[in-house]
Each structure stands twice: as C-alpha cells, then as structure tokens.
C-alpha cells in the first residue's frame, strides 16, 4: 500500500460508487420492452437485461441518462434519501 500502490488487481469493484447517488432510477418491469437503449447509454455501465432492465445500485451514480433515453417511460426516479428512509 506504500505510496497508494494497489497490488490486488480488480480492486476498483470494491469501491461501491453507488454511495454517491442522490437520485435513484427505478425500472417499471411492466413497461420495459427489453429494447436495451438504456444499457447502451449507461456510462457506468451498470444496467443488464435480465429479464428486463435491472440496475446495479452498487455502482449506479444516479445520472438518470437511462430515464432520459427510455422510449417507453419505463424508468422513473426518486430521491435517494426517500428510498432509504422507506
């Protein structure tokens, strides 16, 4: 660890960047048509199609690009704090 050197490869996945999120995208499974446009646009990338769009909240930073590009309005969003207090 001297000098911030990281010797175990793949350690970036241990840093759960999802904690930075202030707004959480939520997929409506009924409306999702599995078109995959959100998967292509997610910069993280943390959306998979299994069985419909599923967001990995460990790494989703809440940019909401998925919500903006979804042609079926299948993705809505909610303040992260509201989701956690629920």
């Amino acid at each position: 660890m001297t000098g911030g050197t990281v010797k175990d490869v793949g350690s970036t996945t241990k840093n759960k960047t999802g904690t930075w999120r202030s707004e959480r995208p939520i997929v409506d499974a009924e409306k999702c048509k599995r078109c995959g446009i959100c998967v292509q646009h997610c910069p993280e990338p943390c959306i998979t199609l299994d069985p419909h769009a599923v967001i990995d909240y460990d790494f989703c930073k809440g940019c909401l690009i998925c919500k903006a590009v979804c042609p079926f309005d299948a993705i809505t969003s909610k303040g992260e704090r509201l989701c956690q207090t629920k």
Partner: peptide, 21 residues
C-alpha cells in the same frame, strides 16, 4: 519493491483515493 510496472505482476499506481485512505 513497492511500485513498478510489470505485465507479469500487475498493480495500480498513482491511483485515486477516497477521503479516508
């Protein structure tokens, strides 16, 4: 020993660190 780029022993150097580390 602590820091050298070698394809056979990959490591990350000069990396990003969160506040605590």
């Amino acid at each position: 020993e602590h820091c050298y780029l070698d394809p056979n022993k990959p490591m990350t150097i000069g990396t990003w660190a969160m506040p605590e580390p």
